[in-house]
Design a protein around this nucleic acid. Sequence first.
DNA 1: TTACAGCCTTAGAGCGCTCCAACCAATAGA
DNA 2: TCTATTGGTTGGAGCGCTCTAAGGCTGTAA
Lengths: 333, 333
Amino acid sequence: MVRPTMEDVALRAGVSRALVSLVMRGSPKVSEMRRSAVLKAAEELGYSPHAMARSLASRTSTVLGVMVSDLHNAFFAEVVDGIDEVARERGFDIIINTGGRSPARERRALESLLSFRPAGLVLLSPVVPATAIGKAAEQLPIVLVARSSRLSTVDTVNDDGETGARLAVDHLVSLGHKRIAHLDGGEGSQAGPRRRGYVAAMEAHGLVPQVVSSEYTDTAGARAIRSLLADDALPTAILSCNDFNAVGAISALEDAGLHVPHDVSVVGYDNTSLAALRHVSLTTIDQPRAEFGRLAADALLQRVREERTEPVRHLLNPSLVVRTTTAPPGGPR
Amino acid sequence: MVRPTMEDVALRAGVSRALVSLVMRGSPKVSEMRRSAVLKAAEELGYSPHAMARSLASRTSTVLGVMVSDLHNAFFAEVVDGIDEVARERGFDIIINTGGRSPARERRALESLLSFRPAGLVLLSPVVPATAIGKAAEQLPIVLVARSSRLSTVDTVNDDGETGARLAVDHLVSLGHKRIAHLDGGEGSQAGPRRRGYVAAMEAHGLVPQVVSSEYTDTAGARAIRSLLADDALPTAILSCNDFNAVGAISALEDAGLHVPHDVSVVGYDNTSLAALRHVSLTTIDQPRAEFGRLAADALLQRVREERTEPVRHLLNPSLVVRTTTAPPGGPR
DNA sequence: TTACAGCCTTAGAGCGCTCCAACCAATAGA
DNA sequence: TCTATTGGTTGGAGCGCTCTAAGGCTGTAA
């Protein structure tokens, strides 16, 4: 269980440690003869460089840290894909860590990530207080995804929830709907912009907004529908705050003997894999998740290379994905 | 962007670097006076120890590496929860990394994880060849989750798919079903044990097994049902290879005007969050995922502490979760 | 007074690596 | 022939920390 060091490789190849170092870093100023001798020795010994010692000595790092607030959410997996893609392209490795949606755990995750002295950090929808982020940002470049910030030291990448909500409303209106309710996400992140976008779009069409308080879960969506039914205030179309909420809403509608989209059209938000299931086939708003990741990694690397010190605020455009839960009022069952 | 070192803290506190080191490691042989002086100085400077330098100097590591083959699958998130729980309890940190289900990427992920010289590695359902795992196992303790191995140097944690399938069949038989088909997972991991368990359980009940070739996706599940319908060979109950497949099957059954569970009962496998959605409410087989993680971390730490050198093979019992997609033949719609 | 425990504290070596300056051919230019 | 120059190679310092062995204090006993 003891790994060979550069010294061992040097000894075996009959060269100096410094030369092995040059070979390992792919320096051009090494003769072909020595290079192959060194590589051969390394191969035979099963040597691979010690990233920490390297980073310690060079005072640089080729590692990007990624803090994922919730590993259970596939949304983040796709963002990580984007980060990973760009990072690998530029010769950086990523290490991931999770905060489990708890500020305390997240704090520890952050601390742990920091202790590796990565070149920079991407925080995916962090729940720690802004001050903690600001403090970390004094030590290394930080990019926030799916969370906004006024800190001038951090970059942010977000989707434009107002636009997304507007797209959904426009779609429903173009199908002929006039009574469109929004089941909102309460305090949930991004719930604000979505609600504002919905209200603005409704007003732009000369329609009356109807915001129903709800949450980002399927049970909350079902509950909201039941309350609408009880109040006899059911609209012809529903814009849910996210896909889970929408699925819950659909289920409550069907329980009540109503048909989607014949009686009520439903639009989700996020385009999760759930929405794509043929059993669900939900019309929804898609966010360019991998693009989030790519932009985040890109912004981070710009800071790492000190190519930029001004903060960047990316606001990406969501898009509408039409499936089978929307139709003109009275349309197909 | 330059972080303070132990030297800076020592200078500020008016003590030696070694004393700061003792304080940081929580040594009891430091006077209360000095300890508080050091902690105060560290606080003021925003100092936190450099994990890599520490690990380099101490030739030990308090980091466990976790390689997740597919970050998109929430299954792994729950395993990670279990690992994280045990690791934190014992003062270890984890760093995660993903292979994106591609052997090449996974290899690189492994290499990257290895370069941090963690105390040990947990590989979640890795797709790299066994030889690569064996080679890594020469350098540090390794535990495999959701993948078996004959290597005597690695521990494994798996669920008992045969038992799971048997539980499902027993449940259906107890409801009165006699014609029960299995939509199988083909080459997918764990598909073999599930199929074997299904066949064995059917035969144990004196029933005729009916294995339909399928895959771990919802479209495959729907396809399998359509082929059964076309052949006029629809049974009264279906055991799918996983939840996605089951949802696809249900959807195809409903498209054909059949009712679940009135006409056909359906059982999934995995108890994903999908199954728990009230819109789906799928009877399924649950695997103790967090327990996988806890056992994996535990086994790893035993090796790390050299408390054990014999391999351990955990085979955990799955359990049945009854929801609303199963009923006696001709039962409720 | 000296001796001798404790108990704290510290200097210094060294972990595996990078990087710099110096070095050593071998060749080119004068 | 001698000096530059170039291309390849090397020793040594040092990154931020830990760990060992050796110190410096006190206070108590002889």
